[in-house]
Design a protein around this nucleic acid. Sequence first.
DNA 1: CAGAATCTTCAGATCAATTTCAGATGGGGC
DNA 2: GCCCCATCTGAAATTGATCTGAAGATTCTG
Lengths: 225, 225
Amino acid sequence: MYRILLVEDDPDIRELIVQYFTKKEKDAFRVDIAVNGPRGLEKAAENPYDLLLLDVMLPELDGFAICREIRRSSDIPILFITARADESDILHGYALGCDDYVVKPFPLPVLYQKVGALIKRAKGLVRFPTLHAGSLSLNPNNGTVISDDREVTLTAKEYGILRVLLENKGSIISREQLLNRVWGYNHTTDERVLDTHIRNLRKALGTDGKIIKTAIGRGYTIEDC
Amino acid sequence: MYRILLVEDDPDIRELIVQYFTKKEKDAFRVDIAVNGPRGLEKAAENPYDLLLLDVMLPELDGFAICREIRRSSDIPILFITARADESDILHGYALGCDDYVVKPFPLPVLYQKVGALIKRAKGLVRFPTLHAGSLSLNPNNGTVISDDREVTLTAKEYGILRVLLENKGSIISREQLLNRVWGYNHTTDERVLDTHIRNLRKALGTDGKIIKTAIGRGYTIEDC
DNA sequence: CAGAATCTTCAGATCAATTTCAGATGGGGC
DNA sequence: GCCCCATCTGAAATTGATCTGAAGATTCTG
């Protein structure tokens, strides 16, 4: 079952979408509702949704703003629903990193298929090529980490952190992103645990530990080389 | 550069799409052409495309048939282009495993963005566009800044300032706006800190530092060029 | 259930980043 | 050309993000 968050202020549209998505195939989707922008952000932060359906015109915080905020730390598929068919609006949506855009009124079955296709696309292509950096390599398929031809054993958290950093080699990953990805989006963890695990990870990697760089105030990174 | 295969029998539409995709951003896309279904299948089998653009109505072998065939062995993103706006057709497309569907006539920029979004999604990256000015570029996804092919490391504040200025290239951003956006809206910071950070930023950027212009009494700007 | 491994919490230390400050500079209006 | 005030500059002071070591809590394993 895929979990979707619908942020929409019009009760009629909400009802239509929820009905269609939950009735059409039983247990295919679970649709949560947020009636305004701030609630949407809140829910999105607390739950691991597979896709967001955002109305653009919302009181308080519009869909574009939600998208911008979410995209700071997440790759989740985002689909805009809007009455505004202006080309410039659509382009604005894409510039913010949305995945698709449907203009009201739209046939529900089409929305349904778009959502399905997008989730599959986002999930489906999970191939796991081995990740490398310097003399370090991590194989996501069997969970092994090799440093200088010597296998190192990492704890779950250490492995998670290293994997996220390697998957994004060359990028600075904020502490927030790391906590979200390794601990989950609804973590209540004290931010300081990350320091400790980073330290343990560096120690466990020995000489290779130094490839994990601190970018003060911005996060951590493994440089692309 | 992403490789696209366009299967389309109408020469005018082919021309339009190829023109737009290859001219808009140089080297962003390479578009190959197949003028009919069988040639399309052949080319798709021989080359590692990132996305297929399929016209539905084709002589010999229509887009749906191509899609069905391709989907037996590949999950490459597929986008249908069609004149038929029937809901049942669209659903048929999705049933075959397509990723999206655009109905003629469509604005080219929208197709362009859809294609971009889909490829990124398929590759597992949703991205903000890189910001450029002169020989300087800032990649908001990475958090990296490149000046003259050399990566420069910036502190959090320096990066924040540069990003705001680049996002608004060509317009003057007041000191107040900068403080609000980089330090937050409830900042109590002494206005003079900004001077210091601007100086450090200019120094860190080396030769490129001079693209940050002071507009006395009005703020700072990076000129559009 | 004991013992080990892992994860989390905490508090003091450290050092780069940030802020403060004071004098220098210089652009623009008169 | 002169003056004023916004901005620049260098250096010093402060802050606060991160690191570290150690200890307590939790989970896993046999």
